[in-house]
Computed example of a mutant assay.
Amino acid sequence: MSELRCRSLSWNDFSGFLKRLKTLALSNNFLYGEIPNSFSLLTNLIHLDLSLNQLHGQLPVNIGKLTSLSYFLVANNNLIGKITPQITGYNIMNFKNYSIRNLVDLEILDLSYNKFNGEVPHCLGNTNFTDNQLEGAIPRSLCKCKNLKVLNLRNNKFKDVFPYWLGSLPYLEVLSLPFNKFHGDITNNLSKIATSPFSNLQILDLSNNNFCGKLPFMYIKQFRSMMDIDMSTIGSPRYLKNKFGNYMYSIKMIVKGKQLDHKKIITSKSTFDMSNNHFEGEIPNSIEMLRALRNLNLLHNLLTGNIPPSIGNLSLLDGLDLSSIRLIGEIPQELVSLKFLEVFIVSYNQLEGPIPRGNNFDTFSSYSYEGNLELCGAPLLEC
C-alpha cells in the first residue's frame, strides 16, 4: 500500500465489528483529533496504545468501562485537562461512576509528555506521568499497588516531602522524581519506614528538587538490589519487562553528564542520583555497600569532607560526578581501581594534591578537575 494516504480514521462504528478486539496499537502515527468515547464499547480490550500521535482534548469520560484493560498508553500527544475528573470517568448523563479503580487488571498507565494539570488521581498500575504540569502531593493510595515496579513523576510541579511510605512496595525497581518541588529532610521519617524498605530498588533519581539534610544512610543500607553484583550484565544489560516479556517502559535520566532517553529501562544500570539539591554533611562510607552501582551523581549539593576511599570498592561504577560541592583533601588512590569508570568529574571543589595516575585516570581531561586550585599533575600543571 505504498500509495495509500490516510489523514484520519473513522472510529464511529467500533461497536459493530470490533467487540472481540483485545489489542489496538496505533502508536507513532499522525492521528489527530480527540480520543472517541466509543472506545468504551471495546469491552474486551486489554492493550490500548495511542502514544506518539497528535491527539488532543481530554481523556474519554467512559474509559473506566474497559475493565479488562491492562495497558493504557497515550504518551507524547497534546492531551489536556485535569486527570482526576477524566480518568475517574464520572458520567453525569447516566449517573454511573466508571472509576479507574474498576480497572483491576491495569498494569501500565502512561500519560507522560502531554499537558495534563492538577493533582494525581488515586490510581493503579506502573505509572508514568512524566513532563506534564501535575502538582500537589503524591497520593498515598499508591501504597496499595503492591505490584508497582515503576513510578516516574519526572518534570512536574509536585510539592511534597519524600514519600517514604513507598518503601512498603515489595517490587518497586524504579523511583524517578526529578525536576519537581519535593523538599525537606529525607531522614525525618526514618522511624516510620517499613521493614527492608526499597529492597528491590535499582534506580533512584531525586535530582533537581529541594531536599536537604544528610544523605539517607539508613535507606542506603536497605537497597539490597544495588548490592548484588551480576557480572553477566556487563555485556548483556538486563531490561525491565512486563509479565508478558515485553519492554514497555521508558525513562529519561542524566547518565555520565548527559541526558539520555531510554526507550527501555536498564535495571542492571543501577543509579543513585541526588544531584542539584541541598544535601549537607559528609558522603557516608555506607555508599560502598552499593556494589552493583553504575552511576553515582551528587553534583551541586552542600556536601563537605573528603572523598571516601571506599568508593573504590564500587567495582562496576562507570559514572561518578562529585562536582560543585565542598569536598576537601586529596583524590583517593583507591579510585584508580575502577576499571569501568568512563566519566569522573570532581570540578569546583577544594581538592588538593596530586591527581592519581593509572587505568582510566590517564584518559580524563582537565574538565574533570577544573576549579580546584590546589590540584596538580596531568592533565593539569605539574606539582
Rank of each mutant, 00 (worst) to 15 (best):
M1F: 14
R5D: 12
L9Q: 15
K22R: 15
T23N: 13
L24Q: 03
S27M: 06
F30H: 15
F30W: 04
E34G: 00
N37K: 06
T43P: 02
I46R: 09
Q58A: 07
V61L: 14
T67Q: 07
L69K: 03
Y71F: 14
L79H: 13
G89E: 09
Y90H: 10
N91W: 11
N94K: 12
N94L: 03
Y98E: 15
V104L: 11
S112Y: 07
E119V: 15
E119D: 09
T130Y: 05
Q133A: 11
L134V: 10
E135C: 09
A137R: 13
L142R: 04
L142V: 02
N152A: 05
G167S: 12
P170W: 06
L172D: 00
L172F: 05
L177F: 06
P178I: 10
N180T: 01
I186H: 08
F198K: 01
S199T: 09
N200Q: 14
N209C: 06
N209R: 10
N210E: 11
F211N: 14
Y219L: 14
R224Q: 13
M226I: 02
D230Y: 04
D230N: 11
S236G: 03
L240C: 05
G245M: 12
K258V: 06
D261E: 03
S270W: 08
T271Q: 14
E280N: 11
M289F: 09
R291F: 00
A292V: 00
N301I: 06
L302K: 14
T304N: 01
T304R: 03
G305A: 10
N306Q: 15
I311C: 09
S315C: 08
D318M: 02
G319P: 01
D321H: 13
P332N: 06
P332Q: 06
E334Q: 15
S337T: 08
K339A: 02
Y348T: 00
Y348L: 01
Q350A: 07
E352V: 07
P354D: 02
R357E: 00
Y369K: 05
G371P: 01
E382L: 14
